[in-house]
């Protein structure tokens, strides 16, 4: 059984609701609130992009502490607690689907009183903040959500995002039932 998130670009309106739903879901699960999807916008195509859960996932092979694992349903997940923030997985990912995020000792986003130590235009992998332990964050298909469904798919305003499952097993609800 494998499942992945597909996007229909002609339906995507780049509203970012998927990112908000992703952030809310992961925060609720006690994980980093950084959204696991990014919006790609050009004249030709607009789409939200996330992890492809590749069959030969290079990130999986790169991780020195086995914080990245492949589940039975072929989903590639990061254990945020185990991750040491070495960023090797991000360098290996051909899609830029792995981002880094950490909670500063001064609190959550918005109320931190930090002094910027990097230029935002720098490559994301090179960014760092004093006192922040950054960990790899990537799509985990919302495994920890009570609904068992990726929140981006649930809340996509135009139903541009959908969950595609192959080799259905009887105990997993289909996309329709889950909605």
């Amino acid at each position: 059984m494998s499942r992945h998130i597909e996007i229909e670009p002609s339906r995507c309106i780049a509203c970012g609701t998927c990112q908000a739903a992703c952030s809310l879901g992961h925060r609720r699960a006690g994980l980093q609130a950084q959204p696991r999807l990014s919006l790609y916008q050009s004249r030709e195509v607009v789409a939200s992009l996330t992890c492809h859960h590749c069959a030969g996932a290079p990130c999986l092979r790169m991780c020195p502490v086995d914080a990245i694992t492949r589940d039975l349903d072929e989903c590639i997940r990061v254990d945020e607690k185990r991750c040491i923030g070495c960023k090797l997985c991000s360098l290996a990912c051909p899609y830029g689907a792995i981002d880094f995020s950490g909670t500063p000792i001064s609190g959550v986003a918005g109320i931190e009183y930090h002094t910027p130590t990097f230029v935002a235009a720098a490559d994301p992998v090179l960014r760092w903040k004093i006192g922040v332990y950054s960990r790899a964050v990537k799509c985990d298909q919302c495994v920890s959500d009570p609904s068992g469904k990726p929140q981006c798919v649930t809340y996509c305003v135009t139903k541009a995002l959908r969950l595609v499952e192959t080799q259905q097993t009887p105990d997993v609800p289909t996309a329709e039932e889950g909605a």
Binding site: G16, T17, Q19, A21, L24, I111, Y155, V157
Partner: peptide, 16 residues
């Protein structure tokens, strides 16, 4: 349906 503001624009009520 709700967009991102309807979905996540509530916690100002908690005086964050």
């Amino acid at each position: 349906e709700l967009c991102l503001k309807g979905l996540s624009g509530y916690d100002f009520l908690n005086d964050t």
